[in-house]
Design a protein around this nucleic acid. Sequence first.
DNA 1: TGTCGTCTGTCGGCTAGCCCACAGAACTCC
DNA 2: GGAGTTCTGTGGGCTAGCCGACAGACGACA
Lengths: 224, 224
Amino acid sequence: MTPIDLKLGTIVCEAGAPLEHAYFPEGCVLSLLTVLENGSEIECANIGREGAFGLFSAMYSRVSFNRCTVQHVGPMSRCEIEPLQVEFHKSAQMQDLFVSYSETLMSQIMQTVACNSLHSVEERLCRWLLMMHDRAEGEKLTYTHEFLARIMGANRSSVTQAAQSLKNKSIISYRRGLMQVSDRGKLETTSCECYAIVKARFDAFLQTPSTVVQKAKSRRTENH
Amino acid sequence: MTPIDLKLGTIVCEAGAPLEHAYFPEGCVLSLLTVLENGSEIECANIGREGAFGLFSAMYSRVSFNRCTVQHVGPMSRCEIEPLQVEFHKSAQMQDLFVSYSETLMSQIMQTVACNSLHSVEERLCRWLLMMHDRAEGEKLTYTHEFLARIMGANRSSVTQAAQSLKNKSIISYRRGLMQVSDRGKLETTSCECYAIVKARFDAFLQTPSTVVQKAKSRRTENH
DNA sequence: TGTCGTCTGTCGGCTAGCCCACAGAACTCC
DNA sequence: GGAGTTCTGTGGGCTAGCCGACAGACGACA
């Protein structure tokens, strides 16, 4: 594991580019984006200290189908994929962790499919701010409306309107390139359901890995 | 592996319900849906003979986060999850397959995030028809506009308009509850890019499993 | 302190798609 | 062949959000 320090907005891996490492955020937040032919991009999931980027992509195809960027600066390590792969094949615990993380990450992405299709820009902005508020741990969120619009797949002026609406309700405050949550409770009630659902699944994932591994072990011994 | 015969529209597993089996379509098509609080549902991915449902969900949490329904009738088998799990821990080949299938399925879902957010109903209808046309292998597609609207997260009258537009261009024909592709080529050019991208990834996945396993094997022996 | 680049506020026009409703057509079942 | 159900066609009203544009405000930098 080598520490790696990347700036805000850095492209960790471009869509379609080769990938030789897996990245483990330890305080930073990565963003997984789908890039379309016309150049627009849209966020599908983000990855904080609970997860990793490159586990799936790097393992066999050695290519990332999606762009991955740094969305919040913080400590992060990376590791070459070969040794990880060797460990993966040796360790039942890693296999179990891998499967349950796959499941959780996939459920986040599937929730995003529904959210982006069916919820309003204001609701989605709340959800996004909550996710980042959790992961940035009170630090300031240095994002422009332009940036938010890009990753939410929305129009910049729609984002400005949503932000104004939240500011008028005293839920957030912001100025040029900076947003701050002032009323976390109200932010949660104004957000769509998607935040709470995904949060609960990640909490469950984080609480249970050892249990999962235990259960898996005992199940294996029963079966032999 | 036990053959199982389910009718069109059957809910294989409800969102949040316990899951004791993995399902392997051998001609049928399953649909993975996210269900929201207000009852609306939206398709995130579909699974044909190339894949399986329940690999992730059943393996540890024993709960499916998403609804899974039968979207096209055909042969399918299922298998209890315990023996599958035991095999998974024993076989490096299964682990490799699992990882590369995870990656491919996840990329389908991530493409859908972008597609649903940024492409028109008509483009998305084309994409969906192409996917089903591939998997139903020439059989008739017995779907109502109402049904399509639900799973696409669109309005029924919007779907009707899109279908009319395609009919006027002689790309498809349809009547009450039945759709047929008349001009596959034009359907592909009228569709958004998402169909071709996802198709290419699944083709790559299907062509390479043995190669993948070989590479993985040789890499392991090198490392020991 | 002035300059300059970037970000936000706002406007107007516009369109896709939502929502509801109803009529007529098609199919099913008796 | 008739009755009843379900599906499609179509209408109108409406809204969210797109799109482009521009001015003013902010902040960085010299």
